[in-house]
Nucleic acid binder design. Structure first.
Lengths: 141, 141
DNA sequence: ACTATACTTGACCAATTTAGTCAGGTATGT
DNA sequence: ACATACCTGACTAAATTGGTCAAGTATAGT
């Protein structure tokens, strides 16, 4: 199971976007500067976010990105899914009809990882971008 | 955050061990054969498990490993800790006194990862080897 | 029409991590 | 003494990560 900085960057960028897109679209250049994330890398991330319709793009001068939905409708699950962040436990290499790795029975840890996956996904399904926004503005003194 | 097959193998091997060490120590060779894990790799894993006193080793002919504690006293947390399985969310590269990455404030996702970490650790602290054993014997028909 | 801005796409890469292998040991019961 | 089985450290191929680089295309404003 992995949670890498691609997922973290996606969340950071979207929180930033949510905070500044009240009037105008927000350019990746601005997000890049404010959050300290490479512009080129952000472009990769946003192309994925767009594909999953979490953001919309507006081209041209004064263009940028805006959220496609309200912050409370964007769950972390959606974000991670968009950027291929696998909240997925290690798979058994070959899961045949009957069991794992060609054996007749499920491997002893199989159910465990399933449970864990559910446990984590529950967490991500509850948290929305709005929750993070609140949390963040509270923090600023 | 990562959960790799080292952690998975450790759990698989310990469940196997717990099931067979009633009378005699269990050799890694047997575990290797039953679970389909490379012997050399198992040796690396067990040296870590031994260091954290989860198993004891008995050398010589008819030697092998036995659990140091009862299955219900061995939590998954302990196992993962032993094999350096980091259930740890991505860190901000430089966490100074005030904030992350040299900024004045904590990065917007900082609290999020802390929460997640706690969430996952809770799961692992509850689960013991005994739980997995039950689960597994139930499964066998 | 021109131009600056900003999105779009795809190829490429260095560093790190993972999941092992390999080659030697050392201890001990029979 | 010898087979078994633990013990240790060095090494490595493949995958992943976290980017960079280059070459576009679309659009708003002048």
């Amino acid at each position: 199971m992995k949670l890498t900085s691609k997922g973290r960057y996606a969340v950071m960028a979207l929180v930033d976007l949510a905070r500044f897109d009240n009037i105008n679209p927000v350019s990746l250049r601005d997000i890049s500067l404010r959050q300290g994330i490479s512009l080129d890398y952000l472009e990769q991330i946003f192309s994925k976010l767009k594909k999953d319709q979490i953001v919309k793009s507006i081209r041209g001068t004064q263009g940028g990105y805006v959220l496609s939905k309200k912050p409370n409708e964007i769950k972390l699950t959606n974000i991670f899914h968009a950027v291929d962040e696998k909240v997925k436990t290690v798979q058994c290499k070959k899961e045949s009809k009957k069991g794992c790795n060609g054996k007749a029975t499920k491997c002893v840890t199989h159910n465990l990882w399933d449970e864990l996956e559910t446990h984590i996904n529950t967490f991500f399904e509850k948290k929305s971008l709005e929750d993070l926004l609140k949390n963040n503005t509270e923090q600023r003194t």
